[in-house]
Amino acid sequence: MNVAVGCKVRFLNDVGGGEVIRIIDKRTALVKTFDGFEMPALLSELVVVEPAADELLQKKTVQEKETAEANRKKKPKSEVEYLTDDSPEVADSSGDELSLDIAFVPSNISNLQQSTFDMYLVNDSTYRVFYVLSNVIDDNHTPISSGILQPDTKVLVKRLTPEDVSKLIIMNLQAIYHKNIPYKPFQPEFYDIELDPIKLYKRGNFKRNDFFDIDAYIISIASTKREAFIRHLTDKAIVEAIKQKEKPAPVKEVKKPNIETEEVDLHIHELIDNWKDLSPGEILKIQLARFETALEGGIKSTTTKRMVFIHGVGNGKLKYEITKLLSSKYPKLRYQDASFKEYGFGATMVFLK
């Protein structure tokens, strides 16, 4: 039996079911579960247990066609078509607040080792979010869930079993913020989530929150409040934090260093002590500040000819920002990957002279 809007369905490969409230595309439908949550599901994984009323379905189809035709006729050809998912006649609210989180909600908070974890995408923003969540294996992305998340809503995107949690899981979230009215644009997200099992087994990682009735482990993907705080970090404060980390090394006999090549380690634990409470954006800002300070010092030096900046591999964000800064602000400097034998893929060499 074909799946249509209004059908009562059961999930083929999971417990529970709900009512189909929208057909997203040829392969996917949006199901409102019996618990009241809205989640996308493959049509091939839905079993119809109660068909929709034919009269209601036909009426809805006719109304949709009439609305679409009316909108098409009254819209000027030069007008921009804003991306919408439903209720296009209702304008989105104003405001430029972003707050996008990944949340892990345990089924058994008292026994995390044996618990399953419901993974939610939480949009506490004034924006709609078009998202794609994927599993990452050897740089290949396999979609888990995708759709458009309305402001102030959340969606269950994956249920992690104890077997899932027993191994390191790498996922990637891509997200685009938009409205159906003129809006201030934000950079799209490309966020890698490396889910270490230890993090889900530590009770202290689960906190009280505004989104769920029980404690949850929440990872912040984007937040305008956090970014506003980062902007208030002055260059002076960053320099002072770096200075606190830099302490005189004990005097010992070492081989004569190569004074022509200076090595700078940009790993955050080498720059400041209290870094564990910093967000990824704050860490990146400190690392780039250290990079520029060291590079400017090397340029002024009369002996340093080359500098090796150790940035590690990670998700490639720091290396990308370094090369972008070199190309835009220091276009006359030549740079390349440092020796693979010594640094692997985790360092960049800059030629000063």
Rank of each mutant, 00 (worst) to 15 (best):
T67P: 00
K319R: 14
P162N: 02
I310L: 07
P40N: 00
V15P: 02
V31E: 08
K74E: 15
G147E: 02
P51Q: 14
F206T: 06
K167S: 12
T126Y: 02
Q244E: 13
F130D: 01
D25A: 11
Q187W: 00
V80R: 08
F291T: 13
K252L: 12
I109H: 09
G17H: 05
A52R: 02
V48Q: 08
V105K: 13
D138V: 07
V105T: 07
T224F: 08
P280T: 10
E81M: 07
D235A: 08
R208Q: 14
D192Q: 15
T61Y: 01
V132S: 11
P185M: 04
I268E: 09
L112V: 05
N140T: 13
D277C: 04
G346A: 00
R10H: 10
S166F: 02
L43M: 13
G204E: 13
L112D: 01
T302N: 12
D213Y: 03
K317Y: 07
I221W: 01
T261Q: 11
R334K: 14
K59I: 04
M349K: 02
V49T: 14
M349H: 00
L326C: 11
A4I: 01
E342Y: 03
K247D: 05
E270T: 11
N274I: 12
P331Y: 05
H269L: 05
N135H: 12
M119N: 00
E227L: 07
T161S: 15
A175W: 08
I218S: 08
Y120V: 03
